[in-house]
Nucleic acid binder design. Sequence first.
DNA 1: GTTGAAATTAGTACGAA
DNA 2: TTCGTACTAATTTCAAC
Lengths: 214, 214
Amino acid sequence: MTEMSGGSSRGGGLAGRIGIGLQLDAVHMKILQVLRENGRISVAALAERVGISRASAYTRFEALRADGVIKRFTAEVDHVRAGLGITALVFVTVRQQMWKQFRAQLAQMPEVEYCAITTGQHDAMIQIRMPDVASVHTLVTERLAGIPAVKATETVFILDEVLKRPYVLPSDRTPRRHPPTPTPPPTETSTPIPLGKMRFVGAAEGRTDLRGDT
Amino acid sequence: MTEMSGGSSRGGGLAGRIGIGLQLDAVHMKILQVLRENGRISVAALAERVGISRASAYTRFEALRADGVIKRFTAEVDHVRAGLGITALVFVTVRQQMWKQFRAQLAQMPEVEYCAITTGQHDAMIQIRMPDVASVHTLVTERLAGIPAVKATETVFILDEVLKRPYVLPSDRTPRRHPPTPTPPPTETSTPIPLGKMRFVGAAEGRTDLRGDT
DNA sequence: GTTGAAATTAGTACGAA
DNA sequence: TTCGTACTAATTTCAAC
């Protein structure tokens, strides 16, 4: 092989996905689990770990990749060591009808590592990595705030990243049966607040154009 | 090779790191850049892309791994396809002097993919992946709220993950010189609020025991 | 740090169960 | 489908430059 990934992720972003494609069984899950822990494992070693033949491993491996279940393989870099020691979260309020522009601008900001559209007080949360605190300030005030689509921002710094797990699969979930009385979905209209400790935050009003048309 | 990663990440968490180790040059950066895009590329192909010999590529590759600059290789899985279609952020207020316990409890919750300690109104932000909305509710109310260290939570749902980049390295940054007049660091005492659009949120009062002693 | 050649391993393509 | 084997091509290692 020359390369095995990097060029075949179908579609554009992480957004909308249609069709179900592969039906994943326990073996698929086990493959994913191993691959999340060690993305560079050889298919032969993978087969051994999962308990299938090499031929099957190749078939399933390729199927998972082709089907988009595995989106890409990546190396996790220590950002501090790489020169980007400061991480911040910026919560952004986006002006209505300007989501497309907002997305377009974000695409041109390489320092943005992650962006998610959320319910709650703000509309989006972006995570940025910077060499120093001053750079965060500059980015937020001069570049983010300069985007017409951005109505307001709120910045918090990340003091420590406690955990970042690659193990998140249904099989990892704690075996914990749902309560007999099915919990009602947490909507704005019916949200019990048990223990007085919880608070779900719904979407802001008039959020109709959440998805861009890219 | 049989395996190339997965068992040698030194230390425990993502927290404190001592010593500088390798001094990264432009070639190292380029290697990291390629590896972040394609974690399964062969060292031979990597060498060609970076423009160095195979042997050099092997040496540098190993050095980056041994030194911890590359923390691990992982496969990015489409969570929706894998059965965890719901993503939520839970902002947690942690009771003072109970950080250690909080961390310990989190370690036992596999559905938590990411946890960061932040400045601002809340103390920590955790990202969870669940099969459905009801499970989020159950997790937050029955498990998270049940932790003594957790004083309060606030949950928001992620409607769409716009981008998740593996390209974040200093070399990716937009070449934009800092303003001649050095921007003052954004502390609570001296934070200019340009355009009335920005808002930095400092740490809550009395946050002295942010780091656990693990 | 680079090239080249040898040994090992990976990836593919068959049949057979 | 999955497995097992054989074949081909690539990668890794190790040598000398």
